[in-house]
Design a protein around this nucleic acid. Structure first.
Lengths: 173, 173
DNA sequence: AGGCTAATGCATCGATTCGACATATAGCGA
DNA sequence: TCGCTATATGTCGAATCGATGCATTAGCCT
């Protein structure tokens, strides 16, 4: 997420955190204890350059810039996304937010296809003796609510993914 | 989640992890490095009792039981849920999965109302100069997809929450 | 019966993240 | 002037993650 936002232009850590918070829909903000060490690691790896602004002594302002190596790293991470980056909705949403930066359309489509594949395999949230329970089988109204909401979510995203993959389709699968 | 599943009956850690994985829709499994220390903490606090099963020597099987104090703790955590437990969709889903265990309907409704309130306040994922961007204003197709999916999710959950709160309503707000 | 593979089950380790706190400047209203 | 909020960078202990190790049990093929 840091590499992605910095690819849009230089900014400070604080501004970065505000955007991260917004991208997560204010549901789960990233803490400073996560953000600043993460910036430090990216800087140590040469992906981010830190430039001191005015007021260097007491109240320091540090502007963060993405390096060429950082941009390459961003592309690489978008391209090779797998595991929880695909299966976890929050993580995948972050991927989507910056996916358009990946130049190759075939590679972008491949990412979408991996997500669609995961969403297409039938999965419930409650099981009995190994087989999934349907909404009608569940008496607990709250658990039924989980299933109903999840179904709606999955359907909406699958429809959108399918539309995206068939729209400008050059390679018929 | 551990307290909730153990409230349904005793089981070992491995079985616990499988159910946690299912409840998350296989999107983000909980690692053993998280689970076993968490069990140990709950046991140290007196919320969980560990009983050694057969094969005590080499291949030990430890069955976990919820204590009375553990059940009280579960109720308390369901009752007083706030912050990311309400705003974060994954966390709230866990809450929902065990909410029916909470005896008092008014307290259960209060939890739902907190979630509904959060979902009702208008929030986008992308902003420009402080004000939220609508789907039509966003040219990036992937970001538009994020908004479209999120809208569908939010609408489905809000509809369900509203239905739940008005259905067996005894207290007209 | 023997051997291979997968699943079950408990546990630890280093790296990462979380949540709370510390610190300083700037602006604004009572 | 006092208090509150926003901006801005950071630290620290506790919790979590992801990978790995290791032993036992179950199923399956030949």
């Amino acid at each position: 997420m840091i590499l992605g936002f910095l690819a849009e232009g230089p900014m400070h850590g604080y501004e970065l955190r505000r955007r991260m918070e917004q991208l997560h829909g204010y549901a789960h903000p990233v803490s400073f204890g996560t953000l600043y060490p993460a910036i430090a690691r990216l800087a140590a790896a040469g992906f981010v350059r830190q430039e001191s602004g005015p007021g260097t002594a007491s109240a320091r302002r540090i502007t963060l810039h993405l390096t060429d190596a950082g941009r390459a790293e961003l592309y690489e991470r978008l391209r090779t996304a797998e595991g929880t980056d695909i299966t976890d909705g929050q993580r995948f949403m972050v991927l989507l937010a910056f996916l358009s930066m990946l130049p190759d359309k075939a590679e972008r489509d491949a990412v979408l296809r991996r997500r669609l594949e995961f969403l297409s395999q039938p999965a419930s949230f409650f099981y009995e003796d190994g087989h999934p329970l349907k909404a009608d089988d569940i008496s607990d109204p709250y658990r039924r609510g989980i299933l109903v909401s999840a179904r709606a979510t999955s359907r909406a995203e699958r429809d959108w993914l399918t539309a995206m993959l068939t729209a400008g389709a050059k390679e018929p699968s």
